[in-house]
Design a protein around this nucleic acid. Structure first.
Lengths: 204, 204
DNA sequence: CTTGTGTTTTTGACGTTGTCTAGTTGTGGC
DNA sequence: GCCACAACTAGACAACGTCAAAAACACAAG
């Protein structure tokens, strides 16, 4: 790679994304500014605007990367696990994201992306898919006669996600300050959710 | 009240709080600026700094008012209701706050207050009390032999609050855009929570 | 090697923000 | 009426996000 004395960075977009990711991991979303970011990367304060329409576009790109990473992690869950065990793993991945990288979680599931409609982020499908996965999970358990749903799967899925999101946000925002054992917590949530809809035995 | 041509407003602190409350209700937290607020109230941009140390101090005051209002509403729940019915009412009040005044909810339970430690806000006790109320609720049901807890009350209380908070935040942040029937939702949550910990009959 | 074109930066500038500080005005006690 | 203090106004500063013009760079064609 050539030196930085020249104008052309060469791979500025990627460098901005990586540096921004690092900055928010350390200082939180509120500590990220386009000027500080540019300074860290070694370019002028408006160089980023050639690669990103505005600050929100850069943040969206970081969130997209985060969703991609989460998806790749979910795909590594072994196929041979039961549906319930897979769900516990997915819940754990979700909680791990929030507890290990609170600012990325806040970006992915917070107002920057969602408050003005997310149609420009191509992430609405992602959120819908997550919701659908939860619905499918419960519908599948019922189809296998493993549980008897006493509420519609959509309601159960909504509350399932809300529970995870609430635990995440209460930590991300600083209301709860103690990082839990996410494996245990995911197990407890799925366990309680099983009991809530009629399953007879606890998660093994 | 005397005219506004004079320097002395007379009751600027209260006017700022009321106007700020109104501004965030309409435009959201991000639309509130000290300059716009001062202009709306008819004073110069730094007048507020005589009454509030900084912007965060003003926001804390609004959040404190919000908690006070929530507490007063909870105190109006009739004593003769069963513990479960009271809990449904409280859950409904909580959800109503989030769905009817999202910015106030975000302020009360979000980063402005909680991210740097809330010791200067005198609200830590409020959050702790809410958590304790949920714990007590479940412990009381168990003491009355109405339910059999299969998890510690602290975990159940934490997940109970997380569920409410998650539903609230998913709406406040714009991930979910449809305002639900909060009475039905509160009933469903408590209903499912009952089932989750072993209650034999649904909420009447 | 030169030239032209397109890309990618830098630089000057603007509007907005929160907040500091000095100065001005108003209030109330004596 | 005077004085001290409270409560404001006004000037100023630093930082922010972003726009647009100018400058530098990369590359292809001749």
């Amino acid at each position: 790679m050539e030196t930085k004395e020249t104008y052309h960075h060469g791979n500025l977009r990627q460098a901005l994304l990586e540096e921004a990711r690092s900055l928010i991991r350390v200082g939180g979303l509120s500590q990220l500014s386009m000027r500080k970011l540019a300074e860290q990367v070694g370019v002028s304060r408006t160089a980023a605007y050639h690669h990103f329409k505005d600050k929100r576009a850069l943040l969206i790109a970081i969130a997209q990367d985060g969703f991609e990473q989460l998806k790749e992690q979910a795909e590594q869950i072994p196929d041979e696990l039961s549906a319930t065990q897979k769900m516990v793993r997915r819940c754990k991945l979700y909680l791990d994201l929030a507890f290990d990288d609170p600012a990325l979680y806040e970006l992915m599931y917070g107002k920057v992306i969602w408050s003005e409609g997310a149609s420009d982020t191509h992430l609405e499908g992602t959120a819908a898919q997550m919701f659908k996965d939860y619905c499918d999970f419960y519908a599948k358990l019922e189809a296998l006669n493993e549980v008897r749903l006493v509420k519609p799967p959509a309601l159960i899925a909504r509350i399932h996600w809300a529970t995870l999101h609430g635990l995440a946000r209460l930590y991300v925002d600083g209301v709860f300050r103690i990082k839990p054992d996410t494996n245990q917590l995911a197990t407890d949530i799925v366990d309680m959710r099983m009991a809530g809809i009629g399953v007879d035995q606890q998660v093994e």
